[in-house]
């Protein structure tokens, strides 16, 4: 993982693999008006869950980090729960898709989508 030098406004780090994958998805859609938004919501088996999606809305208080080909956005309510989190992307036999490693999570459920 690179990009450990720059302080992240969002507090969240998007790995090169994740940024490349997200940018590729945007290019495939022909959209340059979307950003990758990560949000924390109540729910899931462990109490809180992530929502990772492309979003064209800019909301008051949004924190934004710019990567090559994609912007990462975190809303004001979710930011306290995501400081230090890392979003990665893997495409192997063992693991596929975006993953979120969050040092704030005391515990996570087996599905990986919910945390406490």
């Amino acid at each position: 993982m690179t990009d450990t030098v720059t302080e992240k406004i969002t507090g969240v780090t998007l790995t090169d693999a994740a940024a490349e994958k997200a940018a590729g998805l945007l290019r495939a859609e022909g959209r340059d008006d979307l950003a990758l938004r990560i949000e924390v919501q109540p729910g899931g088996c462990a109490g809180l869950r992530y929502r990772l999606a492309f979003d064209d809305e800019q909301l008051e208080g949004d924190l934004v980090d710019h990567y090559d080909g994609v912007d990462l956005v975190v809303d004001r309510m979710s930011a306290p729960y995501l400081g230090g989190a890392v979003i990665d992307y893997a495409d192997t036999i063992e693991r596929q898709g975006f993953t979120i490693d969050n040092p704030n999570a005391v515990s996570t459920c087996a599905c990986g989508d919910s945390f406490h």
Partner: peptide
């Protein structure tokens, strides 16, 4: 208030409305 507050728990609302209510 916050993600686990009254507004944050209203996942039936769009994020924009949740943030406005939280404010």
């Amino acid at each position: 208030a916050g993600a686990q507050g009254l507004a944050g728990r209203r996942v039936d609302l769009p994020l924009r409305e949740r943030l406005a209510l939280d404010r």
